[in-house]
Design a protein around this nucleic acid. Structure first.
Lengths: 168, 168
DNA sequence: CTTGGAATGTCAACAAGGCTGACATAATAT
DNA sequence: ATATTATGTCAGCCTTGTTGACATTCCAAG
């Protein structure tokens, strides 16, 4: 159970004690609350929720993405996603275009209003992230990303890395 | 909007570009899913949810804590928490003892069954965290924690630090 | 001793956002 | 021709959050 079973075998493995792990767990819990707090405020003003934020974020990230693709990134059922997409389309934030090659597919795009909402949400979230990054410094940020990446499911990590290539 | 407005003023501030921030945002989203995946599986087998996990975690962390204290840590309404606590008490996982000094207060403790569930949940979650920590290494873990701490709300960070002191 | 307020519990109602299952439609693939 | 895929939709259920109202118990101040 604990890591107190064996000797540290040469390396310093104190960062793997149950206590260190518990701190990491609590840090994740508390930090995620901060991470979502600012967008949540904006969203609730407009009658949306976190699910709308996610949809808008990934449509903005990959304009023209299909519903199926979005489903596999978000990891929810099509019924859940559809409820969210329907309201976004009705409110004129998202446009759904029938595919040219495969007419079964719908390609999703943000309208100008959708882009405005996305910008408001990501500005708020980036401000928080920027403050944390600046405070912690570049080396800490690198470690932060390394740990988070290692915490993902293998399949999720594929999505993350595919998206990551877009930048840099 | 972007950090491309001014020169990096001597330091290397490339880690604060919008693109780096976006990657951090997506890493948080994807990693949090992995972070909760293992406990979620155990919980759903037993008919519980994430809210039960949180309650059990923090009662284990601070045995004898009051309902009010738990409320301020979890950041939910008493009605939400009460629903969760009631089911845990009914199922014999949590014991609620009337306070000795102040008999209005209820002090919460895990029963043996409650401790067993807590152990199952935290073992699963620690395994994931340990794997990520080991893969990333001690310096990365330090950075991970620095960034997460800086991302919390000020009030939340107080709770986090108070809890943190318990260990070390 | 009375009264105000704090801590807690509980009831009702509601909403978001997950889920499953079933079914419909259109278009592509075999 | 038939099977499969992509999508949408309806109905219903669950968890977990919310608000508002009200009861109880008890400490503490007047």
């Amino acid at each position: 159970m604990a890591d107190s079973s064996g000797p540290p075998s040469g390396e310093n493995l104190l960062f793997l004690t149950d206590d260190q792990l518990r701190k990491g767990i609590e840090a994740m819990f508390f930090a995620y609350r901060g991470f979502t707090a600012d967008p949540d405020r904006i969203l609730s003003e407009k009658g949306y929720g976190r699910a709308h934020h996610r949809a808008v974020h990934f449509i903005n990230r990959s304009p023209g993405t299909t519903v199926n693709n979005l489903l596999s990134i978000l990891g929810v059922t099509k019924q859940s996603l559809n409820r969210v997409l329907r309201s976004l389309i009705e409110d004129g934030l998202v446009e759904s275009r029938i595919g040219k090659q495969d007419k079964r597919e719908r390609h999703l795009f943000l309208t100008e209003a959708g882009e405005a909402l996305e910008r408001a949400l990501s500005d708020a979230q980036r401000d928080r992230m920027r403050g944390a990054f600046r405070q912690a410094g570049p080396d800490a940020v690198s470690g932060f990303r390394q740990v988070l990446e290692a915490m993902m499911d293998a399949e999720t990590r594929r999505h993350y890395k595919r998206l990551k290539e877009g930048g840099t």
